[in-house]
Nucleic acid binder design. Structure first.
Lengths: 191, 191
DNA sequence: CAATTAGGAGTGAACGTTCACTCCTAATCA
DNA sequence: TGATTAGGAGTGAACGTTCACTCCTAATTG
């Protein structure tokens, strides 16, 4: 196994276990077993469990961004960009359940709150692309004039909730319905 | 202290600690200390920690329902009922931060998934009032013809996300903006 | 063969849970 | 009515278990 393969296995194993059992029930011993490495090996790649947990979040964010920015054209109309990004987020997560559950649990837990507070002033690709989109939208008066974070919430709230319901088996999602959900979110924020 | 006062103190302490530190960092010792009871006392009221955690969720749900059903008139038009319930949920949670954070963490964690699966076939006041509302809406063709759980998601997704952003200090919410958020959700689901 | 990396038994701390005991209240008795 | 006893809620030290993390040996690499 190549060096970075081991790191990847640890990340994958941790993500899967926390997605399935939660932060409170994913001990290092279980992570090591699922990753097929020794417990000590984990500490060669990560200073401690908290660092591991935080880094996984960053990795998921990166992969998600890479996916939704594929084919994204910032010169297109606001509505088209909105649909592209919304569909991108939703389709990525329902194709990657473990990443989704991990992402959500992290985001809602005190980890997520602390993380976002530290990041408040940082510029991130993640924030920028959505910020620019919504700013364009309000400037062109095609989007309601609401606080930026509220527009965020009106997109991500439904997306995450629908993804969760789908993954729990409470609502069937296909490409057609994904499109419908995002269009419906657009109906909410459009002027 | 009357008998049930102790139970209430335990519930309150657990809720606050889990809201602030998460499931993984709210040990029984800390709960007992904050509730001003002995550790053993907790086990006179709850069989074990898992039972305690699940019962608190039920209690929050009850209190929330009691709040939003106050003044609810099921004979009024769909839009008016929708606004009443939406505003009720959002205003309850931003006035009760610990309950909100607890509710969210529970809901998104594996606890929540297991809980909802067990409950699938049960009838609950909670489900009924929203189900009837959305059924009326689609029957009267004032609401989009979408799966019930998707209509749920299009209301609760934004509400919870906005509440979270507000409680983390990322968006200021007043009665005026609460009304705006719910109206905006209505724009999403209305035909 | 030296240097680096991996492994997993070992470690002390912290965990949920228990249990022998202490009050305090209220029923019973003289 | 005052004295005695019974009952049960409350307690926190103690228990066995599990945890995150360390450290020394073994394996691998160049």
């Amino acid at each position: 196994m190549a060096k970075s393969e081991k790191r990847d296995e640890i990340v994958r194993a941790t993500m899967e276990l926390i997605a399935e059992f939660g932060f409170h029930d994913a001990p290092i011993a279980a992570i090591a077993a699922r990753a097929n490495v020794g417990a000590g090996t984990i500490y060669r790649y990560f200073a401690n469990k908290d660092v591991l947990i935080n880094e996984i979040y960053l990795e998921i964010e990166e992969r998600l961004m890479a996916h939704i920015l594929e084919g994204y054209r910032s010169e297109r109309p606001v509505r088209e960009r909105f649909l592209h990004l919304g569909v991108g987020v939703l389709s990525y997560f329902i194709r990657n359940p473990a990443e989704f559950h991990y992402f959500e649990q992290f985001h809602i837990s005190p980890y997520g709150g602390a993380f976002r507070r530290e990041r408040l002033l940082e510029r991130t690709e993640y924030r920028d692309v959505f910020m620019v989109l919504f700013q364009d939208g309000t400037a062109q008066q095609v989007v309601k004039n609401l606080p930026l974070m509220m527009l965020f919430s009106l997109l991500f709230g439904p997306l995450f909730t629908v993804a969760r319901e789908h993954l729990l088996g409470f609502v069937p999602l296909d490409d057609q319905l994904i499109e419908t959900v995002v269009t419906t979110c657009w109906d909410a924020i459009r002027q």
